[in-house]
Design a protein around this nucleic acid. Structure first.
Lengths: 344, 344
DNA sequence: CTGAAAGCGCTTACAG
DNA sequence: CTGAAAGCGCTTACAG
């Protein structure tokens, strides 16, 4: 039978065993660092394997070890959202770095909605395609949580808390982020603080809503919250609505950077000067916040580290090690040109 | 031996064979749509498999069929760049959609540089981890091209032409994009058109440089080109340099949206009004271009379709079908508020 | 048209 | 400390 593709040969453990004059089992033991092999034998085998450029056949290893050596990330985000959320790319980088350092590969699937996500998760499980999964964009009553529990599919939630069941989770900076923003605005004298939020379907929106309400009440301030689908047009519409109200806000908090920039544009159209007449804050910091004029005050956090932490936790879970406790990601408010004191 | 994880059982073809009263071979034939099975037998097997919720074990199939069912994409981009290039997320979406529709999974690896990319490619090949790869961000004399040729690793280049060897490629909109932008600016009376370009290491930069030079010469216009690393700060620096020149440009073309926005900020700092005193164009269109003030004239193209087309071509290559010829991606200039006629 | 068997390249108890 | 063997769950010639 002709080989479909030529090119260099790929040695197998049988080749290594033959060249080293040992059995395949010994080669496997040496290559996997298992005990039960004399040091000289181990060294000889390793030398032969290195010289031959041996690498394990992933499929063979996965089949016999019942481990795929891969983790999955199914994303129910329309491509449009994905493309303009630096958050996701950074998260991906952080996860990727951690996994590839351990030769674990990442299965990425971008799907349309939560239902498609559930289908992807089940297929991965059924095909033994991944050893575990990362769940992002946690929803209120997220169906994936009972699903992975029922399938006994190891999982870690990037986000939370709320509806996380028995699945380990890593909350973002929702609580401290909102707190820091409100503190900043209140210190500047703002008492009417509105917010252009994300979708109510997401668990993080609920956390932010609750914390904002609490923080405003404590400060004797007030404000309205308008949900959106995170798009710039929804952000612009919400801004128009808020600025057209009888009692106009003196500050608006946006749940992402792109909506904040869109809000800036709307204010400019309406002849409302930022920050003199209106303070604008983006919850998520990004280069966008630095680059627009006026530059945007925002909450900075290390999203790559966040992703790395979650990936590490998943690996801990897979190896049977204890998973670190859920702690909020540290965050720091970066004051820029879009916030100022309320005019007297 | 205790099973490490319980949860629902995953049936194998042995289970299906038993329940259907046939051999494992027949099950395999039925499930793969191979001829050589009576229609009633096939139907019965398929019904049993569907009822049992059977899904192929990926590793077993990969091992016996010598196909991994996965394609690879190794990205040598620092995370920082990645995060702010909507281009990449869109490309990923397009590729993903095409692959997952055919149950092919995508291996994504984000690495630091071209060398690490070569290491990743070789490992994927050695581990039989992927059936083929997509190469993006083609460089001048890209080392990956001879590498995949030598390894006989099926590959498709997203970008080009130039140094593509025998590997099929899909050029972007470099030629027509630059042409359309120059036409637009020349029609507005501009004769001094500078450009804040990307890195000279990339093949697309060279294409754009050459086409720009040609187009300017034809129009009797002139301009300088400054290379950058695509970051906003580099874009800002280049803008400062160009605007400080004795013969100031009346228009600047930026190779990406984030640098264009940074350039806008610099012009504003210098008290140069866009578009009255300076026209600004972004080569890549994005929501960012729509959202900033003034909104940015840019070249729009369907990046998702582009990614899908490349993914399709790779699948064609893997299946031994003819690969469609290299054709430039269609593009269309979107005039917005950042370009205007040269003041008299 | 169908079945029995070998083989893909590993891992892992089990003997010696 | 080392080897021979079974097995992971598929695919694929090869007999009947």
């Amino acid at each position: 039978m002709p080989r479909r593709q030529l090119g260099p040969r790929r040695p197998t453990i049988a080749d290594i065993a033959e060249r080293a004059g040992v059995s395949k089992g010994s080669v496997s033991y040496a290559l996997n660092g298992n005990p039960g092999l004399s040091e000289p034998t181990r060294q000889r085998i390793l030398a032969v394997a290195a010289e031959a450029g041996w690498q394990p056949n992933r499929a063979a290893r996965a089949l016999s070890a019942s481990r795929s050596g891969a983790c999955g990330l199914a994303l129910a985000r329309p491509a449009r959202t994905l493309a303009y959320e630096p958050f996701f790319s950074k998260l991906l980088s952080g996860i990727e770095a951690e996994l590839s350092a351990r030769q674990i590969s990442l299965m990425l699937q971008i799907v349309e909605d939560v239902e498609a996500e559930a289908v992807a998760l089940r297929r991965w499980w059924a095909e033994r395609h991944v050893d575990g999964v990362l769940l992002v964009d946690l929803r209120v009553d997220d169906p994936r949580v009972p699903q992975v529990e029922q399938l006994h599919l190891p999982a870690v939630i990037v986000g939370g808390p709320g509806a996380t069941g028995t699945v380990p989770y890593f909350p973002g900076n929702d609580t401290s982020g909102i707190r820091q923003i409100v503190d900043h605005l209140v210190a500047l004298g703002h008492t009417r603080i509105d917010r252009v939020a994300g979708s109510n379907a997401f668990a993080c929106t609920k956390v932010r809503n609750d914390v904002l309400e609490e923080a405003l009440a404590e400060a004797g301030a007030s404000g309205r919250v308008l949900p959106t689908d995170y798009t710039s047009s929804a952000g612009a519409d919400a801004t128009r609505k808020l600025l057209a109200a009888k009692r106009r806000p003196t500050a608006i908090i946006y749940d992402n950077d792109i909506m904040a920039v869109a809000g800036l544009g709307v204010a400019q159209e309406l002849g409302i000067v930022v920050p003199n007449e209106l303070s604008v804050v983006s919850f998520d910091d990004s280069i966008l916040c630095e680059v627009v004029r006026p530059s945007l005050t925002a909450c900075a956090r290390d999203v790559e580290a966040y992703g790395a932490r979650a990936a590490c936790a998943l690996l801990d879970l897979l190896e049977g090690r204890p998973v670190p406790p859920a702690e909020e990601e540290p965050t720091a408010l970066v004051p820029r040109a879009s916030t100022a004191a309320v005019p007297a």
